[in-house]
Design a protein around this nucleic acid. Sequence first.
RNA 1: UCCGCGGUAGCUCAAUUGGCAGAGCGCUCGGCUGUUAACCGAAUGGUUGGAGGUUCGAGUCCUCCCCGCGGAGCCA
Length: 431
Amino acid sequence: MKGITIDQARDHIGEGITLRGWLYNKRSSGKILFLQIRDGTGTIQGVITEPEKPDLFSRAEGLARETSLIVTGRLREEVRAPSGCELEVDEISVVHEPTDPFPIELKEQTPGFLMDHRHLWIRTGRQVPILRIRDAVFRAFREFFHERGFVATEAPIITGTSVEGTTTLFSLDYFGEPAYLSQSGQLYLEATAMALGKVYWIGPVFRAEKSKTRKHVTEFWMGEAEMAYFDHNANLNLQEDLVSHIVDAVTKERRDELGRLDRDVDRLREEVKGPFPRLDYAEAVKILQDEGHEISFGDDLGAPEETSLGERFGKPVFVERFPISMKPFYMKRDGKDPTRVLAADLIAPDGYGEIIGGSQRVDTVEELVSQLKERGLPLEPYEWYIDLRRYGSAPHSGFGMGLARVIAWICGVPHIREVIPFPRQIHRLYP
RNA sequence: UCCGCGGUAGCUCAAUUGGCAGAGCGCUCGGCUGUUAACCGAAUGGUUGGAGGUUCGAGUCCUCCCCGCGGAGCCA
């Protein structure tokens, strides 16, 4: 019998097939039994009637949820079935029967309980489509850069220096020397870009901030790119194309999954039609003040301010040219106004916050050293980084994208912990 | 770290002024030939987060601690 996966079922109507999967749920009504079978690609309903197959019926009747099984039967079109086609079951071979009732119920459960059982929760309902969409986002990200001649590369996870002196780092003991888990691969990608031209990577980064919000975790995967000979505007153009490409690819490839999450795909596609508004920081502050926000020039945009800008434009919005004091040492000053830097944040709609932070980088030794000194940072851990400005320095730009936030936004799920297989949060290290 | 809400059966939640500890779901058993988180009936299930205290009597009031959830700040 031909082995297929559930997502291929529609192409095999009328044929006898075999599925390998798990029992998601079952329902019965006297002499007819319905089995919801899942295999990671989808779910399908199997049906068994008692008068026709009494032995099979009584064996199947006793199966617990999440029994792993191999099912053989014939596929047929069936409008009464949830997925439109149905499997007439001929044989069930039980691979393993659960020893205890499956803890994740098909009713509402609290986040704390679900997170304690994350290893089982990911088998159910919304979680499977979300993780498949995550895969599609990662792939679309890589595809985008590969097609444009970027080189995939890596930055170290264990580092001796921080990227931004201010942020909290996880520290560890490196053979007796202090070391840190990377909070960004950026500085290393700048070096690699000077070797390879245009580079990108996706890697884990770590923030020891005690954040407790729906957009923060302590470990997350960042997609970063760094481009030699790209100025600020070229950087923003690339980011805009990237976001459009990801949404386009994912909404085409995973339309069914997005539908199962009740995401309005047409609205999402409409939102990312370019160009994205580009607000000068001063302009953004003015707009927010006019809307009644308590913000003055020099303040960071808080969560309510970001949400407000997203609502106003109904699409991703760039805020650019921030005051230099607000931003880290590696950002290049704006030639037209040296109190500002050539940086931009991309804010997602619907309150998902900043999804990209990027800038044109400092490219002279003088400016870099003076920026480091102004922030009270030591020079010697950054000597290698300063070297990049000593030997054939070139204008260059780059950015980092918080992939979990992008996925949460695309999925329309409220909390990023749901789009990460095993999220790490303050006070959550299990499972 | 700060602010707010919460912790009662395996899960989700009730419990009036301080007065016998309850329901739905799940598991088990029985019924039902088209179920969609099926439905109907029965049975099972408790150190009320922990430690002290007040009281004839505490799930309920007081003190301290632990844990969870939401938000802020910080950031992607």
